Amino acid sequence: MTDQSSPGAARPDPLRLETGFSGLARVGARPSLPAYIASLWAYRHFIRFDALSRLKSNYRKNVLGPVWLVLTPVLNGLTYYLIFGLLLNLSRGIDNYVGYLLIGVFGFQFTNKVVMAGGSAINNNRKVVEAFSFPRASLPIAASLRETLGYIPGYLAMLVLILAIATPDEITWRWLYVVPIVALQAIFSQGIGLLLSRVIAAAPDFLNIMSFTMRIWMYASGVFYSFDRFANRPELAGLLDVLEGNPLYQILSMLRGVLLYAESPSLEQWLLVGAWAAGAYAVGFIVFWSAEETYSREAK
């Protein structure tokens, strides 16, 4: 018998492992952008179900349910009217200030809710992100969709209040413009929510800063005052140009024009708001997708 342990003994070849099997991919790898969009489309039923089920759950948690969608902006509007309309007299020079304020408060509240819901979606669902494999963008999209659907009664209540107490100049077919304007606002807000969702997932402390950021945005959007009051101050001309380029300011201006003053939005406004909506969604989606591999690790 040959001693296999002797130096001259023949030894069996080590087991060779072939690599590069076709069809295999690294677990958790980020898919290509087209493949990611296709996977989101495959999850469209989950997105819709998640948005609707959580919306119903939120209604059941509150005794007044959807009434708060109306009460919150109305109470905010009353507060702003007392402080800025009566005490500070910022209503000077604004036709139909009550309607102007209603549109500003309801319109800003909608963007605020959609942005905050989308931005905190990953942070609020860390256990789900850690435990399951699915396109993570479905979470902020579902959260934004939930707030969009949930705010429909709020916008309807705004229209009723305008008719009841704001007495618009004229009720015309231009009121139909509200639908595409709000649709662009929803797309823009959801895009910002996707972008912030990536930021907050990486740095959860940023969520605490968001309330201050949204408050600054509110003041920069002319919610309860008009930028026209500063038109005679040439030193502010550059700042006013920047503020008037604010997409939320333009959205509120378009809503005020069609609902209060019987004015159609200009082509420049449509193009500006449309560009902001498309750009915000594209940038937010791509930034979110680019970090798809990191969300599971950040959730741990």
Rank of each mutant, 00 (worst) to 15 (best):
I83D: 02
L55W: 05
F46S: 06
Y59S: 07
K61V: 10
I47V: 14
V74L: 15
A42S: 13
I83T: 02
R44S: 07
P66L: 13
F84Y: 00
F46I: 10
V74H: 01
Y80G: 01
I47P: 01
L69G: 08
V70S: 10
A42Q: 15
H45P: 02
N76G: 11
S53Q: 13
F84A: 00
P66C: 08
V74R: 02
T72N: 14
T72H: 08
D50N: 10
R44M: 07
H45I: 06
V70A: 14
Y59H: 06
H45G: 07
P73I: 06
A51N: 04
F49T: 13
L52F: 08
T79P: 00
F84D: 00
K61Q: 14
Y80C: 03
L71K: 04
V70T: 10
V74K: 01
F84K: 00
R60H: 06
K61F: 07
R54F: 09
K61C: 03
N76W: 13
L55S: 04
V74S: 05
A42C: 09
A42I: 08
L78P: 03
V70K: 00
V74I: 13
H45K: 10
L82D: 11
D50V: 00
V70G: 08
S57Y: 03
L69N: 05
N76A: 13
L75Q: 02
R44Y: 06
F46N: 09
A42L: 12
P66T: 07
F49H: 12
L55N: 02
L69Q: 07
K61R: 14
L78N: 10
S57L: 07
Y43M: 14
R60E: 06
I47L: 04
L78F: 14
P66S: 11
Y81P: 00
N62V: 13
N58Q: 11
N62W: 12
P66I: 12
Y81S: 02
L52V: 06
Y43F: 15
Y81C: 02
L69W: 07
V63W: 09
A51T: 02
D50F: 04
Y81F: 11
L71F: 11
R54A: 07
G65H: 05
V67I: 13
V74F: 10
I47D: 01
D50M: 05
D50L: 01
S57K: 08
S57E: 10
R60W: 05
N58M: 06
Y81L: 09
R48V: 09
G65W: 06
V70N: 04
L64K: 05
V70M: 12
L55P: 00
L78D: 13
L55H: 03
N76D: 15
F49Y: 13
L52K: 05
I47C: 03
Y80E: 09
S53A: 11
V67L: 15
N58A: 04
T72V: 12
G65N: 05
R44L: 05
V63E: 04
S53K: 12
L82F: 14
L78M: 15
S53E: 15
R48M: 05
F49M: 12
R48Y: 03
I83P: 00
V63S: 03
T72E: 13
Y43S: 13
L69I: 08
F49V: 08
F46H: 13
Y59K: 02
H45D: 15
I83V: 14
I83R: 01
L52P: 00
F84G: 00
I47R: 00
A42K: 14
R60D: 06
L71T: 07
S57T: 09
G65R: 04
I83A: 02
K61N: 11
L71G: 09
